[in-house]
């Protein structure tokens, strides 16, 4: 994968006559920008998936990505920690920075980058190990072997993920014995155990029941003070409940981005309005 200037790249609006230029509502945060995305384009082989996305993700806030299926939310999210590197024939262009440092580029240390961002996936993916081993996996990766340190990190991460009370007596049991909701919170604990700056969540509640979903939402609320959170969701109420800012994407383009209440109550783009009111999607 490389940053390539593609000759055949599509200019926004060049191919799609219905393209709306992105509407930006003002977004700010006291701490400033965490991730800045400028004109980011991405191709899977020859199929373009993202058409020049530009947005500033604010530090210490929850940013939700919404949009119909296949619009490129996961693609964008997985580009932030370069999870897409696993895919062959991927091309990107544009400028993406995490606290001012470029994310793409030959000199970037991908492993160091990923350590600064925790990721939670759509389906809980605990490793086939004990609960404690799962949580301390990022520390194991860093070569930490001190038992006391590991135990402390395990406890604080599990407490941070609101799972400690439920599993403190079974830390040495297999993580696969947990319920789906517990597994997802375990994955959140694992993501925060590495002490990242950003949490990326790709539909973290889509495999969970309403009660487990509620717990995760509460958790996001609590985590917000310590992490910058980017969450992909299909659930409009969820986006409205948990996020400070919302980005609406459509067909690989960012259509509208702004404070959640603005996007939901006074959408400027017609497409956004239709989507958030449930008329299409």
């Amino acid at each position: 994968m490389a940053i390539a200037a593609r000759k055949d790249e599509l200019r926004p609006g060049a191919a799609d006559a219905h393209y709306d230029p992105t509407v930006y509502h003002p977004v700010t945060s006291p701490q400033g920008t965490e991730i800045s995305i400028r004109d980011f384009k991405l191709w899977y082989g020859s199929a373009q998936a993202l058409y020049g996305v530009s947005m500033e993700i604010q530090k210490g806030m929850v940013t939700s990505l919404i949009g119909p299926s296949g619009c490129g939310k996961s693609t964008l999210l997985r580009s932030l920690n370069r999870m897409n590197d696993l895919i062959d024939n991927l091309t990107v262009s544009g400028d993406v920075r995490l606290s001012g440092q470029p994310i793409f580029g030959p000199q970037v240390d991908v492993i160091a980058l990923r350590k600064r961002m925790g990721m939670v996936f759509q389906k809980p993916n605990p490793f086939p190990m004990t609960i404690a081993e799962n949580v301390t996996y990022p520390l194991k990766v860093d070569g930490v072997t001190n038992k006391k340190l590991l135990a402390e990190a395990c406890e604080s991460a599990l407490k941070g993920a609101a799972l400690w009370e439920e599993v403190k007596d079974r830390l040495q049991e297999s993580a696969l014995g947990l319920s789906g909701g517990q597994q997802q919170r375990l994955c959140i604990a694992r993501a925060i155990a590495g002490n990242p700056e950003v949490l990326l969540m790709d539909e973290p509640c889509s495999a969970l029941d309403p009660i487990a979903t509620m717990r995760i939402e509460q958790l996001i609320e609590e985590l917000k003070s310590s992490y910058t959170i980017v969450i992909v969701t299909h659930n409009m109420q969820q986006a409205a409940r948990v996020s400070d800012n919302t980005a609406f994407m459509y067909l690989g383009r960012l259509i509208e981005y702004g404070e959640t209440k603005n996007v939901f109550t006074r959408p400027t783009s017609k497409r956004t309005e239709e989507y958030v009111t449930g008329r299409f999607g």
Partner: peptide, 18 residues
Amino acid sequence: VPRSMREGSLACGASKWQ
């Protein structure tokens, strides 16, 4: 081996060999 396992590990900052 499910892709989700590898992705989970890589997202934790593990190298390919780890």
